[in-house]
Simulated scan of single mutants.
Amino acid sequence: MEFLINENLFVSTKLYQLTKSKQKTALSYEDYQNKDTFEQVKHESSFMSQTVSSGVRYDLLGKIAQETMLTRNTIAQILSKIQPYKFDYFKHNPEEFIQECIRLITDEKSLLIKDNISYHEIEGKFADEIFFTTNINRKPEDQHNKLTKSVVDQVFTDSDVEKDLLKELESHEEILVYAKLPRSFYIPTPVGKYTPDWAICFAEGEVQYVNFIAETKGDSSKKGLRAIEDAKITCAKQLFNNMSSKTIKYDVIANYGELETKAGVPLSKKDALSLEEQQSLINVLIHDQQ
Rank of each mutant, 00 (worst) to 15 (best):
F3S: 14
F10M: 13
T13D: 14
L18V: 13
K22A: 11
K24M: 10
K42T: 02
E44G: 10
S45K: 12
S46V: 07
Q50Y: 14
Y58K: 01
L70Q: 08
N73M: 13
T74F: 06
K86L: 08
H92I: 06
N93E: 05
N93W: 05
I98G: 03
I102P: 05
R103I: 08
T106A: 08
D107Q: 12
E108L: 02
D115G: 10
Y119M: 00
E123T: 07
T134R: 11
K146M: 14
L147A: 07
K149T: 04
S150A: 01
D164Q: 13
E170F: 08
S171V: 02
H172P: 06
L176R: 03
Y178L: 04
A179S: 00
L181K: 06
L181H: 01
L181S: 09
L181G: 02
P182D: 05
I187M: 04
T189G: 05
D197Q: 04
F202N: 07
Q208R: 06
Q208V: 01
Q208W: 06
I213H: 04
K217N: 06
K217P: 14
D219M: 05
S220F: 02
E229D: 14
K232R: 02
K232D: 12
F240T: 09
N241Q: 10
M243W: 10
T247N: 11
I248N: 04
G257H: 03
G264F: 05
K269C: 12
K269S: 15
A272H: 01
L281P: 13
I286A: 09
I286Y: 06
H287P: 14
Q289I: 15
